[in-house]
Structure formats: C-alpha cells, structure tokens
Design a protein around this nucleic acid. Sequence first.
DNA 1: CTGAATTTTCAAAAAATATTGAAAACAAAT
DNA 2: ATTTGTTTTCAATATTTTTTGAAAATTCAG
Lengths: 168, 168
Amino acid sequence: MKLSEAKQQFISSWGAFGTQWGINRTMAQIHALLLVSINPLTQDEIMEELSISRGNVNMNIRELIGWGLVDRVIISGERKEYFTAEKDIWKVATQIIKERKKRELDPMIKLLSQLENVEGDKKDKAVQQFTQVIGSIKKLGLQADKTLDLLIKAEENWFTGSMLKMFK
Amino acid sequence: MKLSEAKQQFISSWGAFGTQWGINRTMAQIHALLLVSINPLTQDEIMEELSISRGNVNMNIRELIGWGLVDRVIISGERKEYFTAEKDIWKVATQIIKERKKRELDPMIKLLSQLENVEGDKKDKAVQQFTQVIGSIKKLGLQADKTLDLLIKAEENWFTGSMLKMFK
DNA sequence: CTGAATTTTCAAAAAATATTGAAAACAAAT
DNA sequence: ATTTGTTTTCAATATTTTTTGAAAATTCAG
C-alpha cells in the first residue's frame, strides 16, 4: 500500500470510528489528517484535502482546539493561521480522557447524587431497589473517576510499566 | 424528589448521556427503565412508559439483547414475553466493555496493523512519521486491549481492591 | 388446521445532526 | 483610513439517524 493511499484510508476509517464514539465524523477526520501531516496545515489545505467547506473546517478545528487536541501555529512572515495536532498518542489519550471525564462522567455523578435522595418509605421495595441501583452506578462512577484521575497524572509508562506487571 | 419523578429523571438523563457515547437515545432509555423496574416488563408496558411505538421498542430491545444487557423472561402461564435487565452494575460495565472492545477496538487494531505495512523508502521522512504515528496508536490499542481483557476477567473488587492500592 | 395474540420487519415520515456558502467581522499592510 | 486577505458566523440545505405504524410472519391454544 502506498503512503498516500494509507493516509486516505486512515483518515476515512478514523472518521468512521469517531462516529461510533459519538464524535463528529469530520472532526475525527481533521484530527487524523493533522496527525499524519508532518507540517502544520492551513484551513485551505484541510478544505482541499478532505473536500469540505470552509465553514465546516473552521467549526471543527475550533472544536478540536476546545478538546485540547489541536493547536494554532503562527508561522512568522505568514498571514494565514496554521494548525497542528499533538503527535504524542499518550498525551492525546489522556487529554481525551480528561475532557470526557469533565464533560460526561462528572455531570453523571452529580445527577446520580441527586437521585439518591429520593423521598419515601425506606421499607418500600421499590424505593430500596431504585436507591440500590442508582447508588451502585454512582459508586462505579466514582471509582472510575478516581482511577482516571490517577491515570491522567501518571506517566507514559503507566500501561506498559506497573499496570501490566500488576496483572502478570 | 418523589420516586416516580426520580425514575423519570433517571431515564431521560440516561438517554441523554447515551447519545454522547454514540448510543441510541431510546435504547439507553429502555435500558434505564428496565434497570429501575423491579419486575420484568412487556413490550406494551415499555411502549406505554416511554411513549414510543411498538416497532421502536422491539428493535431496541433486540439490540439490547445483542449487547447482552437485557434478557427475555418467560413467565409461565403468560403468553407475552417479558424483559429484564441485569442489575449488577459491575456485570453491566464489563459486558459493555467486552462488546465495545469486540466491535470497535479489535477492528481498529486490525486496521492499524494493515496500515503499518506502507511501502516506500524507510528514509523518507513522511513514511517514517506516518509509520510512527500509526505504530504508536496501535501500541496504545494493544495495551488497552490487554488491560481490558484482564479487567473483564477480574472479580468485582478490581476497582476497589488491588487497583487503588496500586496507586496508594 | 384455524384463528387470535404477539412479535418482527421495513418503507415512509419525522427528527436530529452536519454541511454549505455567502455575508459579516476582523486583522494586517500600505 | 482604506484595501486586501483571512477567519468567523449562521440561516438555509443536505444528510444521516431514528421512529412510526401497518403489514407480514410467527407462535400458541383449542
């Protein structure tokens, strides 16, 4: 397989995987494109490469910047803005975990905490069961939250190092 | 907050969280409903409770069964089928991990393995960089795969037990 | 086997989401 | 201050995804 062909394949597949995870296809494709581009790209280059409109590029680039996965790059003497993606995959992964935790896990735990305080007879089977289910989901959430915090702080060898040794 | 109100809130919020994870809103809501229902429910009861059509219930229930999160229950003497959800949240979590791994992570690793074999000059900076990025994503994927396999096999106290001890 | 109850399918409709493109806003150079 | 290149916005449009509901298929009882 040729390089250009492989890049195309990567970009298109990454977009497809993205949608399965609730991520906009184009956003995932732009990220993929920047990951496999040696040099930073302009909006025009991204438009060209992916055959998408200027507005689409602009919106998704800003979204990617919001996720902390893409940075603006100023090239001196150039009028246009350039964009580049973090290439260190460990950093990319922790950044995504950090954001999803903040946007999704934390609000979910907050919700579950509220739902735990349902009023009613403690002997009521229905109340018991509800509180039990909500409580156990919250517990799992809190544990995941804690673990992910540590993971985010841990160094790159977390997976390869102590983690795997632990399970032998 | 009253129990019925809390249930409604849980179901509706669970649906919203689901969509963020690329899961059909109704499927997540049906799952939530069954999680907080003491008794198994029929399709008619689910239709009624969530105000959705029969076809919609049927399709999403089958999808949930496919994910291993919901089971058909036969109640003797009854003609209708009943449905119930696994209430043990740890089992639910490992089941979801197992399925997403199979449906998403494994295919992704397969793709990356193919893309690693790009033909071309090894000294070409572009080829090097591409291979490096693809290789590191694959590596991360393989490590996650391995870790999740162990997690799936591990007992319920994985998070609370050794996992947290490891990080102090 | 027949008929009634129940489940499944799937084309059409509705809803949700993503994309376009042109106008407006902004920024740099002269 | 004006022109020119560039970025941003957002209403309109297109696409994708979900939902409906009625017909077909299936299942069970008699």
